[in-house]
Design a protein around this nucleic acid. Structure first.
Lengths: 140, 140
DNA sequence: ACTAAATTGCAACGGAGTTGCAAAAAATGT
DNA sequence: ACATTTTTTGCAACTCCGTTGCAATTTAGT
């Protein structure tokens, strides 16, 4: 695990530091998405707010994570799949947010359907955000 | 026009005030979506920030407008179609944001396609956000 | 191990959004 | 039209989020 984390960082051309290790570990332990606040809480008091911001920004730039916009204006982040990097970004899956537990997850298997826009529009990115009740919450 | 505005407000069970008239007018004059900041600028120095916040909140609650989440964490608001009200909300169209001019518009004619989620998930709302280049910007 | 480059923590700042409260304006009943 | 009640507004103050500059520390490369 330790190895894997350091490898991932190096592969993304990021210096290996305690903060980045810890934050990347949090993402790997979690199958859902994390907000800045989540990370600050889970990381304990060990890192400065600013470091968390800058780490997330670096991860974003290097294509380690991608951001998920939400209706309540609180951006979440989730690990990208292996074939993402700073250059190319494959991010064509649907995002789901549970209105009950608040968790956000990537539904990697659900591909965003293609759509036709009126003529004249150029499509660059499509984001599909589904909210409802997740599997865990619905089961209760 | 004046008449129409007052009627709309009354229909939504909102007291008619200068601020609400003005802000609703801005939405009617505009075919795109407006952010809080846009409204403050366009309304001039006439209204307090707080009034704008509270007005938007009131409009949201009464179903006059709906919010559009964006990737850059700046919520926009757009007029709802006529058949929306505090009770029922029909909001099944695609939203488009231009990366060039920054404008956000509702593509009322483009319906969000239905999707199948893995079993166990309960879908309550689907938001589809397309970004790219809008008709006006692409034409140049 | 040494040096250059990158990262971190701190302090400070600016912007966004919220709340309490008194003054002002709108709605209501007569 | 007027008085009363209810709602809305503006102000001040506050919190929270995110950013920036800078000095100190840590990492990477040789």
């Amino acid at each position: 695990m330790e190895k894997k984390i350091d490898e991932l960082l190096r592969k993304s051309q990021l210096s290996v530091t305690a903060g980045r290790r810890k934050i990347l570990e949090l993402f790997l332990q979690q199958d859902g998405a994390l907000s800045h606040g989540d990370i600050e809480k889970k990381a304990g008091e060990k890192f400065d707010r600013v470091t968390v911001y800058r780490t997330l920004q670096a991860f974003l730039e290097k294509g380690l994570i991608h951001s998920i916009p939400t209706a309540d204006n609180s951006i979440r982040y989730a690990l990208c799949s292996d074939d993402c990097s700073a250059g190319r970004h494959r991010d064509d899956h649907v995002h789901f947010i549970c209105n009950h537990c608040g968790n956000a997850v990537c539904l990697e298997d659900v591909v965003v359907p293609s759509i036709r826009l009126p003529r004249g529009y150029v499509v660059q990115q499509v984001e599909m955000l589904v909210s409802g009740v997740c599997r865990n919450c619905a089961a209760q």
